[in-house]
């Protein structure tokens, strides 16, 4: 097992270096730069432009900038935003709990609803339930997130008035947020109604963010389940006279879960991408919105280090999934 873990870890180093190059290069390949955007309609003389670029250190050869970036990274320095002048790491740590809280709720919704739907659809293959849920899953998967989010806001917040429009908690509550997780902080605040307010603010964004993973998980569970149900050991289990519940719940589902867990792991990357749009619509102060703002301002240090941190998290999650996979599937562990 240790060899397996070390093997997986050794993949991380080249991947990590690759990401630094992509993250560093990506934002610089985009046309435009922070100084031009700062000058706006007013324009800037070529001399002043050069001076500003020099002040920010962007006038030096690109490889020199990259090596300096790498050197600082090795020393734990993720750089400072050129706009807000704040350290990128501290901004990331401030904003990440918001994204994590949202992503966690979304994945819980996706799993809790997606897996049973997939199982039921597989068991009732070809039935109207199967048809309706799988068609809905396809629709959910193809849904433009921005449009979907706005639609839910207009209907549930605007027309029905059931849910708040955006934000993390009603602004009339004001309490310290030591953990950054609003559900926890609102509970700790002891203010009456704060937790309910935080929870109600999570409903719509979680549903929106969960939509695509839910569709994927439901479809994946269904096909994995169908495959397993036709295996010999399931037939044997049935022949033995086990109850259908036991056959499905113990023998089939456990084996069907192996590919589903991988899928769930892969959805973390999807959640990060989805967070960009979801956070923008719901004014959710997380890292997705932060990245969008920083890209549009061409805030190079934030974009390059932010991407690296996000990629790092996705990598770690995938590693955990890999290990988990090894744990539940001995064939992988021993190969």
């Amino acid at each position: 097992m240790i060899k397996f873990i070390l093997g997986r870890l050794s993949y991380l180093i080249p991947t990590f270096i690759g990401i630094t190059i992509v993250a560093f290069g990506f934002v610089r390949i985009l046309p435009g730069d922070p100084v031009l955007l700062m000058a706006g309609e007013r324009g800037m003389t070529p001399e002043h432009y050069q001076d500003m670029m020099a002040r920010l250190g962007f006038d030096r050869p690109i490889w020199e900038q990259y090596l300096e970036y790498l050197w600082k990274l090795l020393h734990g320095d993720f750089g400072n935003s050129i706009v807000t002048k704040q350290p990128v790491l501290s901004d990331f740590l401030t904003l990440f709990p918001a994204t994590l809280e949202l992503a966690f709720c979304a994945i819980v919704i996706a799993v809790v609803i997606g897996v049973p739907i997939g199982v039921l659809a597989a068991l009732k293959r070809g039935s109207w339930f199967d048809q309706v849920t799988m068609t809905s899953a396809l629709v959910g998967y193809s849904m433009p997130i921005f449009w979907w989010g706005l639609l839910l806001i207009i209907f549930f917040s605007g027309v029905l008035g059931w849910t708040p429009v955006s934000g993390r908690v009603s602004l009339l509550y004001y309490f310290p947020t030591p953990t950054g997780f609003m559900l926890i902080d609102s509970l700790m605040s002891g203010q009456k109604g704060a937790f309910a307010s935080a929870a109600s603010h999570l409903i719509l964004p979680s549903i929106v963010l969960a939509t695509i993973p839910l569709a994927v998980i439901a479809r994946q569970t269904r096909s994995a389940m169908l495959e397993v149900l036709s295996e010999d050991y399931v037939r044997t289990a049935r022949a033995k006279g086990l109850t259908p519940r036991r056959v499905v719940g113990v023998h089939a589902l456990r084996n069907a879960m192996i590919p589903v867990i991988t899928t769930i792991g892969l959805q973390v990357g999807v959640l990060m991408a989805g967070a960009i749009l979801t956070e923008t619509i719901f004014s959710w102060p997380g890292i997705g919105k932060w990245m969008v703002d920083s890209i549009s301002r061409r805030d190079y240090p934030v974009v390059q280090s932010g991407l690296l941190l996000i990629a790092g998290i996705v990598m770690v999650v995938n590693l955990v999934v890999d290990l988990l996979y090894g744990l539940i599937n001995p064939r992988i562990r021993h190969s």
Binding site: I153, I154, S157, G158, P164, V165, G167, I281, F282
Partner: peptide, 14 residues
Amino acid sequence: TDAAVRAQKLKAGE
């Protein structure tokens, strides 16, 4: 940040 969401917030009294 989104203008349509701002309008919804204003309508909802947020």
